[in-house]
Structures are given as structure tokens and as C-alpha cells.
Design a protein around this nucleic acid. Structure first.
Lengths: 358, 358
DNA sequence: TTGTAGGCGTTATCAG
DNA sequence: CTGATAACGCCTACAA
């Protein structure tokens, strides 16, 4: 430990003389000066282990004390610039109001924290142009990985441009993974929506339902289209006529409005099969407002797995959301290109459907 | 425009020879080289207007073309390091599953985008230590501003440490604002929870309710405590006995569980006054599951303003969430220390309460 | 109208 | 065991 430099020379260009100026963030250099060591040494102490460059206990203590005293926080910006990537994992969600994405994000967060990353999420708002803006920002900030949580809308203005940008980013080394079907070349960890939906449709038929209406979706949204497809083919297989309604959204409002409209009509179906928990809750709201008995008059089921569905004791195929998030981080953190297999969904029987009668 | 440098010298230290190496992100220097100009000129063109340093149309076109061709994306990291702050506005939410925070975040996002910022949110999970981690990360990444969306829990382990860190950050120049009561020295833009709750309580009494149960909260959570306080004092003023239950959460599960317990008891109250929309939806789920008529048997109201409440046509004090978010950005973007006034809440009468009988 | 050079805070490479 | 020094990619006085 060499003798401390004089205070005057410690921060030559910082106005330590200007009495009323507010203190700015302490830099590594400030810590080094206070501790009376070089920035190199300070860096080594504060970075933790560096086997090839041991530091004496006294110096270590001095640096630690100085850092503590100054409230030193390393600049993630400088570190990211130097190392070519930051400690951020970015999540692009399709709808910040839908807890489905919240559950995925929580899974990502937990795994991220364990791996030393910080998760930040940005709202794509189901708009390719906003997704592109957010994706760019995350990438430009050197995110170690970027996770897309929902699918894209085929043919929507901006979808192609987003795909080009993402593909380019991937070529240039950014780790990108999607937890829903997407039209770009990223890794994808996706539960089989078609099979899942077919399974749930079969279950409803098994409970005696025949007139099953599929609720919700957005034309071109891959995940939604796949669910409709699974429903349709199962209905046809059983000789039943599929009926899809409410293709104007994946949220509670979409579900409520279309179910309310149907309830105002002449006949009520046996069951509503909702594309996700949000539309299902919307459907429940419509039924509740109309005083319709569930599952006496009509059954409801959905494809989801959020807490909101369980609150209403909804019969639902529950997707393993937390696990999907964990796998996304596993892919990002792993430097190989092995893509983890998607976990499987499970059927949870609630009180919104009848017992099986067979 | 000077003659192009030879390709060999353009990227001396980059292995343009290694045929199989993947292309990395283009830098400003690469653009300049391709366009045959200096980085300064390239910077000027790509940064947009700089009146004192005009650029000739040909050079401008060459640079633009080069940037386009290379897919150039400026490094936000380098820019942030140079300029001392980034274009990020960080939002710390208390519960990523609660759309209340989603609505606030959307307000922030919209205003941010208009002001040229990018909004990223991080989940504090109602845990001061996680909030601290997220806050530090955002700050270290040079966030232009950090917005807290929910209150802190007085006395919880970590709350004091968070406050110290936030206060220090503020002293050191970080713009911090809270949209809920907090125990640190940041700007706060907060709707009057006490008055709001008192107003709603009075409304319920006006509809004829006498046995009004307040549902939900977390002891020490300022916003929740204030709502309880407004309820309590109004009840006392009218000679009624307050009854607060479910102080173990602000989410749907908390609301559902406590209401289910009450419904299992001997008597049913006249009304449930829920601390937020989430507990109200939980209460509705419990009532729905139990087949209780609303508002025939019991009324429900809440303090919120999310879409979820409107779906169920809930009587609620609606907080101006989007507007609060907008004001937060206004504060962050403004370099003065003027704190915008909080907007007022409005009462929305839905079908979950009876008509006024007076 | 365009270019040169220095530095933002950190880490890595090389000397001592 | 410890230090000086050179980048990382960008912006911006200051030249020319």
C-alpha cells in the first residue's frame, strides 16, 4: 500500500472545490484514490476472485472500506462496453396487462437472478413495430439475451421487418429465444398448442358437451391459430361442428363481449373453450353478469395456467409457465446451441365443467 | 468524400480474413469506412441535425447507405457511457402479475416513447431486497429516471437499506419518482388514498350498507394502511363499526380466501370494500363459487381502476393510472425539481352495488 | 464542409 | 503481489 495521494490531485478535473455542487457517483478511480492503490488493484478486489492476481489482506480491506464509504457502484455501462455484453436479460411481452406473460417473466427472473443476470421487461403490445423498438433498445444496450414471450402476427405490418432485424441480430451473436411460435430463426421453446387444444376439446366432449364454442384469438397469431386448429380437427373427428368466435382479441374484454353477445341470442352452447385464461375470465364475467349457471347451464374451460384461472377454479390446460421461463434462461446462459425441449402441459379439472359422464 | 480506404486497412484488428467467423455488430467506424468518411462525419449524419456542422448531400447519402447496408445500430452502451446517462426509464413494480402496475407502466411507456426514452420494467415483488437489486441495476445502467409504482412496507427487513440507497442515488443526481407513498426522499406523485377510501365508504353507506367489511392489505404497506384509515374514520363518523380482514395480501388469492371464509360463517355483511381491484376480483370469485347474489345479497366495491374491475362492472374508485404514469415521465424528463400535482380519482358506479336509497 | 484527438469507467494485458 | 496502459464505441471540442 503506497501513501495516499493528496486530495488535490485525487480528482483533478472534478470540482471538489465547488462547495455547493452535488456529489456525483463514485468511480473505481475514486475508490482507488481513497484506498491509496491503483485502479487495477481496486478492480481486482471488487471483482471478487482472480486466482492469478492475489491481493494482500490489508489492501483488500482498504479497498473494501473505501468502496463502502463512498457508496461505490460499478458502472454497468462501462462494464458492458468493455466486455461486449451486459448483465441484462430482456423480455419482450405481448401484453403487459396479461398475467400469463407475468408468470413467464417471473420464471425468467428467478432463473436469471440465480445465474447473475438482471431481468428487465418491455411491452411489445402485440404491435410488431413496438416489438422492434424494444428489441433494438435491448440489443443496443448489450443484453445478454432477449426472450420473446408471445407469438407474432403473420402478415401484420412490421412483422417482416422485425423478423429481419431479429435474424440479423442472431447472426451477429445476440442470444434470442422465443416461448411462442415466431416467424424468425431464433431458438423456440414452445408447448404444442395444437395437441394441447385437441386434448382439452376431447375432454369437454367426454363430459358430454357437444355444442362447444371456441372463444378468442387473433387471425394470424400463430399460438392462437394452432389452438383453433387443434379444436377444429378434434371436433370434426367426433362428427361435431366447430364454431369459433371472438377473433378480435386475447384479453378479458374480447372474451366478455363475445360471450355476452352469444348469451343474448336464442340458444346457449354446452361449453365455451377459451383460447386463454384472460378470455375465460371475460367469459365468466359475462356469464356472471347474465346470471347464467356454470357449469349447470354452460361449461367453461381454457388454455392457460395463470393464478387468475385457478381463482375461479377453472378447468384448464395449465402450461408450465415458470418452467418455460427457466428454460429460456438456460438457453441464453448456455453457450452451446442446444435448445431445451419444451415441457408438457397438464389438465386441471375445476368446477367450471361437469364431471365426465362416461 | 475522400477515396475509400482499402478493405485490408478498414478493420485492421477484425478478422475479415477468418471466413467462418460470424459477423459482429457494425460500429460507427465500419460505417465510416464503407462510406469513405471519418467517424465524425458519420456520427453527424446519423445523429441527425447539427446546425453548426452541415454535411454535403452526397456524403450524407453515402453514410446513410452504408449504415443501412451494414445494419448499423449505435451502441446504447457506448453512448450512455459517453453522455453519463442512457435513454432508459426504469419502472420498479411491486407485483408483475397485478395489472394495476401494468396500467401505470403503460402510461409511463407512452409518455416515455414520446420523449425519446425506452421504458423497461423490473419486478420488485414486494420485497425490499429485490427492489434494491433492481434499483441498483437500473441505476448502474445509467437510467435517465427510475419510477417506483407501489409503496414500501414500513419496518420490513431491507426497507431501510433500500431507502438509504435511493436517497444516496437522488443526491448523486438520479431522477427518482414514486407513484405511491414511500419512505425515501424522492418526488412522489400520489393520489390521496385516505380521502379516496373515505369517499367510497361514504358512498356505500349512502346505498344503505351498514355492515361493511374492508378486504385486503399488508400491514405497514402505506397505501393500504391509508385506505384502511380512510375507511375506519368514515365508519366511526357514521357510528358504524369497522371490520378489516385479509391483511395478508393485495392479490386475488388473498381476496378470495378471506371472503370464502367469511361466507362460511354465520352472517354475511352488507358489503365488501376491497383495497384494490385484484382483491375484489378474488372476492367475486369466492361469491361466484358460493352462488351468492351480487348485489342482492352483498355489494362489492374497490379502489382501483384496472380493466379487470370494469369487466365485472365493479363499483370502484378509479385511479387515473395512465395519467400518473405520464406525470412520472414529465417529472423525470423535466430538469427542474417541480413535482406535478397528483390528479384526482373518480367514482365509477357499476352493478356490484345497489342504487342509492336516499 | 470535414477530420483529429481525447476521454467517459471499466477490464485485460503486460511489466515490474 | 501491484501498476501503468491500452482498448471497448461513441461524442465533441478544437482544428483545418
Amino acid at each position: 500500500m503506497r501513501p495516499s495521494r493528496s486530495g488535490t490531485f485525487a480528482k483533478p478535473w472534478r470540482s471538489s472545490t465547488g462547495s455547493s455542487s452535488r456529489p456525483s457517483m463514485a468511480r473505481l478511480r475514486d475508490v482507488a484514490d481513497v484506498a491509496g492503490v491503483s485502479v487495477t488493484t481496486a478492480s481486482r478486489v471488487l471483482n471478487g476472485a482472480d486466482a492469478s492476481h492475489p491481493v494482500s489482506p490489508e489492501v483488500r480491506a482498504a479497498v473494501t472500506a473505501a468502496a463502502e464509504q463512498l457508496g461505490y457502484r460499478p458502472s454497468a455501462t462501462a462494464r458492458a462496453l468493455k466486455q461486449g455484453r451486459s448483465d441484462l436479460i430482456g423480455v419482450i411481452v405481448s401484453d403487459i396487462l396479461d398475467p400469463y406473460f407475468g408468470e413467464l417473466t417471473r420464471g425468467i427472473e428467478i432463473a436469471s437472478a440465480a445465474a447473475g443476470f438482471v431481468t428487465v421487461s418491455a411491452n411489445g403490445n402485440r404491435d410488431p413495430e413496438q416489438e422492434l423498438t424494444r428489441f433494438r433498445a435491448l440489443r443496443q444496450h448489450g443484453a445478454a439475451g432477449i426472450v420473446f414471450c408471445g407469438s407474432d402476427i403473420d402478415g401484420a405490418p412490421g412483422t417482416a421487418a422485425l423478423a429481419r432485424e431479429v435474424n440479423r441480430a442472431i447472426r451477429e451473436g445476440t442470444r434470442v429465444v422465443s416461448l411462442a411460435p415466431r416467424g424468425f430463426t431464433s431458438a423456440q421453446i414452445v408447448v404444442d398448442n395444437t395437441a394441447t387444444s385437441a386434448h382439452l376439446t376431447a375432454h369437454l366432449i367426454g363430459t358430454g358437451a357437444r355444442d362447444i364454442v371456441f372463444v378468442g384469438g387473433i387471425p394470424g397469431l400463430a399460438a392462437a391459430d394452432e389452438r383453433i386448429s387443434g379444436y377444429r380437427s378434434t371436433m370434426y373427428e367426433r362428427g361435431l361442428k366447430p364454431h369459433v368466435v371472438g377473433l378480435d382479441g386475447m384479453n378479458q374484454t374480447a372474451g366478455r363481449d363475445v360471450v355476452a353477445t352469444i348469451l343474448a341470442g336464442a340458444t346457449t352452447p354446452d361449453a365455451f373453450l377459451c383460447t386463454n385464461d384472460e378470455t375465460a375470465v371475460g367469459a365468466i364475467a359475462a356469464l356472471w353478469n347474465a346470471g347464467v349457471d356454470v357449469p349447470g347451464d354452460v361449461a367453461i374451460a381454457s388454455i392457460g395456467g395463470t393464478a387468475g384461472g385457478r381463482i375461479f377454479d377453472l378447468t384448464a390446460v395449465e402450461l408450465p409457465l415458470g418452467e418455460l421461463g427457466r428454460l429460456a434462461v438456460e438457453y441464453v446462459a448456455d453457450d452451446t446451441d442446444r435448445v431445451p425441449d419444451a415441457p408438457v402441459a397438464t389438465l386441471r379439472i375445476g368446477r367450471t365443467t361437469r364431471e365426465r359422464t362416461d
